[in-house]
Design a protein around this nucleic acid. Sequence first.
RNA 1: GGGGGCGUAGCUCAGUUUGGUUAGAGCACUCGACUGUCACUCGAGAGGUCGCGGGUUCGAGCCCCGUCGCUCCCGCCA
Length: 597
Amino acid sequence: MTTPSPATLATSLRTHLAGTLRAEQTGTAVVLGGWVHRSRDLGGQVFLDLRDRGGVVQCSFNPQWTPSEVIAAAAAVGIESVVMIEGTVAPRPAEMRNPEMVTGAIEVRATAIRVVGPAVTPALPVAPIKDGKLPAEELRLRHRILDLRREELQHALVLRHRLMQTTRQYLSAQGYLELETPILTKPTPEGARDFLVPSRMHAGEFYALPQSPQIYKQLFMCAGFDRYFQIARCFRDEDLRADRQLEFTQIDIEASFIGREDIIAMAEGLIQALWAEAGIAVATPFPRMSYADAMERYGCDRPDLRYGLEIEDLTARFAPSESGIIQSALQAGGRVRGIRVPGGAAWSRKQVDELETIAKGAGVGGLIRLKGTGSALEGPLAKFLSPESQAALQLREGELLLAVAAHDRVASPALDRVRQECAARLGLADPTVRRFLWVLDFPMFDQDPETGALAAVHHPFTAPNAEDMQARPDAPASWRALAYDCVLNGTELGGGSIRTSDPAVQARMFALLGIGDTAEQERRFGFLLEGLRAGAPPHGGIAFGFDRIAMLLAGASSLRDVIAFPKTTAARALFEGAPSAVPAADLTELHIRTVDA
RNA sequence: GGGGGCGUAGCUCAGUUUGGUUAGAGCACUCGACUGUCACUCGAGAGGUCGCGGGUUCGAGCCCCGUCGCUCCCGCCA
């Protein structure tokens, strides 16, 4: 993406962008429009820093070139007011140059000023204050216009724009068509809670806002559009987080007559183009790891590969132990797995207890800890381990072994959190390093350990691995899916799958998910099944979380910093004041009556 | 639904531990001075529902109970 030359932003009211003026424009007569960033009134002369989209330039009001009434007007204007300033670009006296401003070699010798948009005293500072902290998030959101004027958010939203255009260019160049799908759509029975929209014309019936355009993009494939993409707004009525908003933007992609490798190659190219737009070179292809491998070695399906601390199976070492805790865990089908932390032996009892609290929070009963002290192991369990077992652990001096004896289902998430906390303490996650990764071969279903009920790990339209299905037709919980996730430094950037294009297979998937009744399938997913029955090409796709990518590339720590008008964690829009009550008559027209909770 | 943190001037904060005169500072704002500043400087001034409600007390910014808002996390997010 290239930005237009400053000249193209000239209008009938202004000639240049303030922040783009340079020494080359010396002698040029300019008319600028912008906001008063700062002002310095020295008595006989006045300096105004004028800010517009392009940046900041100093405007100098001096009796040598400025009429006295203009100087008086400049002295009187309040900061953040919008002014039009006429003047001439001039070099600053050599000793007055400001090397910290890109425009610092020059200034605009002002001859006229007009206050076109006087501002009340701003509720928040816009110009940065040295060592100044940002105002509280609540105030930043309540006075969002002022916050958006800050350089940081200006840059973030400009970057967001450029990433959008890069996406469009990259995909369009490969024959992908940008097609739109409805915002008023049909409620989805699985997944997140829907936002419902009442129908005025049909009493008691509701539209839903899309959680994603998933089914529509598959229908495009059935309709022969072959390659589709959309920068799609999605809505999920779930609790918010720093990296989760009620409405968010996905780069949604689907293609026909493709396999997994086609999607991965296309996606790697897109990632490469987006990171390049942010000035970062990314090498492809990305390494790959199976889901099973990721869970075994890292305890999670989106491992951060910037550091090791890999999980080891220590069952054989601990099996001879007489510890009741370990024996009962093993008898219940569990294993002993753990990580060895270099330098961890120096941690205090309290620090290790904190790790155990984290592990317990993830559902395990406790954390086995053993310190390598050179000659012998230290720790509550050391006495239960035979000298042979202790030696086999090969704990080095200073190492701390943290292990969990439990079923993988609970042990993996616990070890994942302990591993991340240890890495954070040791500063192992280098923020300048980027480790991309494809996680492949996700399981098709997640089985509830109590009820045995199956739920789709990805979504119900994902194709199962055909070999698994044929080899173990009666064990769907063991089937792998043709699904893939793109992971960067422990964060999921996006994911997708090859879809089921055979309506009979799709019906079977619904049945396995507990939607066995044909009429029920037709009622909920008839429009998809009709598409598949009309002749569906093999197809698949992927979706990337656009806001999250923008956040990463902008160096922001919250999605709120790359979304112009975000919601608070309590799901409120403080600036515009949504949601809000509506007149009773509006509800009546929508056939809605509210009840007290 | 649950847990942690925060809430004092327009903004950022101190004051809360140990209740006690009129609640302070920096920036911003108003007025004044100042002809090369760039966080201009200097002088003066104005500015407070200590989030809100209740309680304890002779007395509450400070202690107790409740509540609201923002935030981080767990649950949730196919």
